[in-house]
Nucleic acid binder design. Structure first.
Length: 188
DNA sequence: GAAAAGATTACCT
DNA sequence: GGTAATCTTTTCC
């Protein structure tokens, strides 16, 4: 990279599009988090779309205290807690969002970014980041895809107990940071 | 006010 | 492959 580390930032119009398209096009982008110890970043390699009329969507039954961030502007971060870990989403259209499921560490960052909980732990994302703006905020942002993305594949979502047949999961084929269903060894 | 479920992960046998 | 950990939100009585 001959230029500065962050050459550009993904704007709000990127997120204000159909959720499945955003989920697919987030693959290969860089997600950075500015913390006390510096900036941590990963290359996004796995996402899942949560859309309307989707029983697995936290916003399926409308706004609640937990999911209020999902009704904020496109590009807003929706962070929720599940068991003892947190997961991060980016809001697209009202009540819809993209779950960040896998990221490959960049810039010497060490650890595993495979899985939504591990990804948040790697980046240092916590529950207090819920509701922040990734477009204008200084804490977390996305940079456009710099280099070529591998083959993109689509498959069933992981971990959800409803609407499991829907193919709303996008991932870069063969990337190490992609989580896999525990079910079988068969590649989707 | 109480009980159940959950977009997970780590560790057990 | 199966289950416990762990705790907040949601839902029901």
């Amino acid at each position: 990279m001959g230029r500065s580390a962050v050459t550009a930032r993904i704007q709000r119009a990127f997120f204000d599009r159909p959720t499945r398209r955003v989920a697919r096009e987030l693959l290969g982008t860089t997600c950075w988090v500015r913390g006390g110890a510096g900036v941590r970043s990963v290359r996004i390699v796995e996402t899942e779309a949560y859309v309307q009329d989707d029983p697995a969507n936290h916003a399926y039954r409308g706004p609640t205290r937990r999911n209020r961030s999902m009704f904020e502007r496109p590009g807003t971060l929706y962070v929720y807690r599940i068991h003892q870990v947190v997961c991060a989403n980016v809001v697209t259209r009202p009540g819809e969002a993209v779950l960040l499921r896998g990221g490959a560490p960049l810039g010497g960052l060490e650890g595993s970014g495979s899985g939504p909980g591990r990804l948040c732990r790697l980046l240092g994302v916590n529950i207090h980041d819920d509701g922040i703006d990734t477009v204008r905020g200084s804490r977390i942002g996305f940079a456009p895809c710099a280099d070529r993305v591998g083959r993109i594949r689509i498959g069933p979502r992981v971990g959800v107990s409803r609407a499991t047949e829907r193919r709303l999961r996008y991932f870069v084929d063969g990337d190490r940071a992609v989580s896999r269903p525990r079910r079988s060894s068969a590649l989707t």
